[in-house]
Design a protein around this nucleic acid. Structure first.
Ligand SMILES: [Mn+2]
Ligand SMILES: [Mn+2]
Ligand SMILES: [Zn+2]
Ligand SMILES: [Zn+2]
Lengths: 155, 155
DNA sequence: ATATAATTGAGAATGATAATCAATTACACC
DNA sequence: GGTGTAATTGATTATCATTCTCAATTATAT
């Protein structure tokens, strides 16, 4: 069980790529980031930790992090691509509230099994899957009902 | 059971929006389009049918088509948003080949049921879901195996 | 026919991401 | 520890899908 940094170092060596200070700082930023983040979030975290890595380098490094299976692209949200760490983490899918943006993570064994079945049926070799359910979280349902009701009352 | 055009007309009236020649031509283009299309595909279809509707109007009309539940956003593919018609069509999900871009559609009743269950569990009110499985279609698996093998042989 | 709010096309703006390029640097090898 | 070389970087520019602006036009209710 290696750390993110060790795993990234190993991945780079494997490909004859260099382990630069910039890449070291980016990995350090990644492990500090919360659940779902985009390129700009990585950049901001770098600033927080006194690093001057450029945004261009952040964008250049993301594919390396994806290829090394340290992070994965999870969602598209407001025209931005969101990533999250996956190394040493369990796979899961997402419920996304279209009102407040809240993201609920879930894992369902049966869904996973059914997906395997579907892939077998179509002789499809899956590398990744994404189940995203959009709608309203409990909080927003309540909020919006209140609005609908008061709107009706006013009528 | 209304036609796409009738439904769109009705939707527009409901919202005090105008049924313009441009919107008529866009609806006519939509029903002629194949499975998955983007804004540019709509624009090209308009050209084919001798219409001069601008791309700006296409982009402006897409949200109306989505709101009226005639089309839905299905996939992000190569930084483009793909849509497909959903009116009078069965819901389905997608297998996408990351090598050749082929899209296989499937429907699985059990997956749908499990999703309802998951939403109940989290008191989540779903408006939409999307299950996308990425990987290699049978054809590409074969092609790539050949490549891998010949690469190994050369070594 | 009139009034008015909605709609349009053309072009400019936006914004995330990718590409360029000259200067720098990691690191394998001696 | 120096050397050579291909990889890397930051700064800048380019890309390109999508949105915005605005003046001119038009659908539709009255
Ligand atoms: Mn997640
Ligand atoms: Mn489809
Ligand atoms: Zn919410
Ligand atoms: Zn394929």
């Amino acid at each position: 069980m290696f750390s993110y940094k060790e795993r990234f170092k190993y991945f780079l060596k494997e490909r004859n790529l260099k382990y630069t200070p910039e890449r070291k700082e980016i990995i350090e930023a990644i492990v500090k980031l919360q659940k779902h983040f985009d390129a700009e979030d990585i950049y901001q975290q770098l600033r927080r930790q006194e690093s001057n890595v450029s945004l261009a380098t952040v964008y250049r490094t993301i594919p390396l992090l994806v290829d090394s299976e340290l992070i994965i692209e999870t969602l598209h949200c407001r025209d931005k691509v969101l990533y999250e760490r996956i190394y040493n983490k369990k796979h899961h899918d997402h419920l996304v509230c279209i009102n407040c943006g809240r993201i609920i993570e879930f894992y369902n064994e049966e869904v996973e099994k059914l997906q395997d079945e579907i892939c077998r049926k179509y002789q499809f070799l899956a590398t990744e899957h994404r189940l995203g359910i959009k709608g309203y979280c409990k909080g927003c349902q309540d909020k919006l009902n209140i609005k609908i009701n008061s709107a009706k009352e006013k009528k």
